[in-house]
Simulated assay, not measured.
Amino acid sequence: MKKFNFLFVLAFLCALVPAMAQTADGSFHGAEATKSRYRAVYQLNTGDTSIIHHALANIQNSLNDPRLKGKLDIELVVYGGAFAVYKKDKPLFEKEIQNLQKQGVILAMCENTMKMRKISRDELFPFVSYVPTANGELIIRQQDGWAIIRP
């Protein structure tokens, strides 16, 4: 039993030392971006303006991350109450989303939400893209290896 306890403590310490070494001298700077491409889909389904602003800021932060520069594909999938982000008559987010689109972000709207809420394409910004269902888009993207991010 003493041998087992000794081995357990030794294994614990061996696991702990590398973790401590990463932060003790301040040398840890996050994960390295070793792949040629990274893909993330942000899902947004609330009309809460603070959450919408937070989500858009998160996307911009990802685009600004120096480790991901030139390696990042992003899609914003909007459904449910979040449809307001793409409405022409509420241009509160227009500049932010246009800026994201100019940086290559795919701006997708759920057509199922549009049917349920009786929203026409004419009510949305002309630069918005469409997907049949947000859930279907998220399922497909996840199975294709995209990170799913929900603010």
Score class of each variant (00 low, 15 high):
M1H: 07
K2V: 04
K3R: 12
N5C: 04
F6C: 05
V9P: 02
A11G: 08
L13F: 05
A15D: 03
V17W: 03
P18S: 01
A19R: 08
A19D: 01
M20T: 03
T23H: 11
T23N: 08
T23V: 08
T23W: 07
A24Q: 04
D25C: 03
D25E: 08
D25G: 05
S27H: 09
H29P: 00
H29G: 07
H29I: 05
G30K: 01
G30R: 03
A31R: 09
E32L: 11
S36P: 07
S36M: 09
Y38L: 03
A40I: 05
L44I: 04
L44N: 07
L44W: 03
D48F: 14
D48E: 15
S50D: 12
S50A: 15
S50L: 15
I51H: 14
I51C: 13
I51W: 12
I52W: 12
I52H: 12
I52N: 10
I52V: 13
H53F: 11
H54E: 07
H54W: 12
A57V: 11
A57P: 01
A57C: 05
A57K: 15
N58W: 02
Q60G: 09
N61W: 08
L63V: 04
N64M: 06
D65P: 08
P66W: 10
P66K: 12
L68W: 07
K69D: 06
L72H: 12
V78K: 02
Y79K: 03
G80H: 04
G81T: 07
A84D: 14
A84I: 14
Y86C: 08
K87E: 10
K87P: 01
K88N: 01
D89G: 01
D89H: 02
D89A: 07
D89M: 01
K90R: 10
K90W: 00
L92A: 14
L92N: 13
F93K: 11
F93H: 13
K95F: 00
I97Q: 07
I97L: 15
Q98Y: 08
Q98L: 14
N99K: 13
N99D: 14
N99V: 04
N99Y: 14
L100A: 11
L100W: 13
Q103I: 02
G104F: 06
G104R: 04
V105H: 10
V105G: 11
V105I: 11
C110A: 13
T113V: 12
K115L: 06
I119G: 05
I119K: 05
R121H: 11
L124G: 11
L124Q: 11
P126T: 08
P126S: 15
F127P: 13
V128G: 13
V128N: 14
V131F: 03
P132L: 11
P132Q: 13
T133W: 02
N135E: 09
G136I: 00
G136Y: 05
E137K: 10
L138Y: 04
L138G: 01
I139V: 10
I140G: 01
I140M: 02
R141F: 05
R141V: 04
Q143E: 15
D144A: 07
W146D: 04
A147W: 01
I148N: 05
I149L: 12
I149M: 06
R150L: 02
R150A: 00
P151Q: 05
